[in-house]
């Protein structure tokens, strides 16, 4: 079912996510939507070492046994595909972004590239554990208006038309977060250079 081209895309993006420190060896998951099916990384597969057998093809609506091998957060992926026009989803655990999410309700970039691409990344709180229906509802609802969001203390969910696009937002989020953190550590006042930057809060 998964063709070679698609496998290659999963493989190189999974590798990049791991080696750039955007997640731990087994943390997170990725999927794409093809027709009325979801192709998702299997539970416990290593991001940086994906093999053709590390994927599960499951139905869009549920009701098949593929879920027994699929990622814990399949339910969240399904809800996102249901509520948004996403064709690809990446969930991973970028460290600086998680750090910022512990004390903020939104991450607003201060660098030029991050402002240009993301403007604002909302932070949502989910009480129940990963893979819960509560998490599926909160995360998918937040993604109706944003291409990437943070779950407080857990990680990000990013969507795109391709895995590469979703990866771009993850990578940008972590760069944004690193810059915010380093600027804070520097302790110097920000010299604002962006007109209307106050409006990013309302994005």
């Amino acid at each position: 079912m998964i063709d070679q081209r698609l496998y290659e895309e999963f493989r190189y993006i999974g590798r990049d996510i791991f080696v750039t420190g955007l997640t731990s060896s087994h943390g997170g998951n990725m999927s794409v939507r093809v027709g009325n099916k979801i192709i998702i990384k299997r539970r416990g597969a290593q991001f940086g070492q994906l093999k053709p057998t590390d994927f599960v093809v499951t139905s869009f609506q549920g009701k098949d046994s593929g879920i027994i091998r699929a990622s814990t957060e399949l339910i969240v992926h399904r809800a996102i595909y249901e509520k948004t026009s996403a064709l690809a989803i990446i969930h991973c655990h970028p460290r600086t972004a998680i750090t910022l999410s512990l004390s903020r309700d939104e991450i607003i970039p201060i660098d030029n590239e991050g402002s240009y691409l993301l403007r604002k990344i909302p932070v949502v709180t989910v009480e129940m554990a990963s893979g819960s229906m509560e998490m599926a509802n909160i995360v998918s609802e937040a993604l109706r208006g944003y291409k990437i969001i943070m779950q407080r203390g857990h990680g990000c969910f990013s969507i795109g038309q391709t895995l590469e696009e979703a990866y771009h937002w993850v990578s940008t989020l972590e760069e944004v977060s690193d810059i915010i953190l380093e600027h804070k550590l520097l302790g110097e006042p920000l010299i604002e250079y962006r007109k209307h930057s106050e409006s990013y809060k309302n994005w």
């Binding site: 063709d3 081209r5 698609l6 794409v32 939507r33 093809v34 026009s85 064709l87 795109g160 771009h168």
Partner: peptide, 22 residues
């Protein structure tokens, strides 16, 4: 938004649909 293989067929339906809707 990203380059996809122009000769590939798998996965094209979703991208076409999203572009049609937008």
């Amino acid at each position: 938004p990203r380059l996809i293989d122009r000769f590939a067929t798998q996965g094209k339906a979703g991208i076409v649909s999203v572009h049609q809707d937008s």
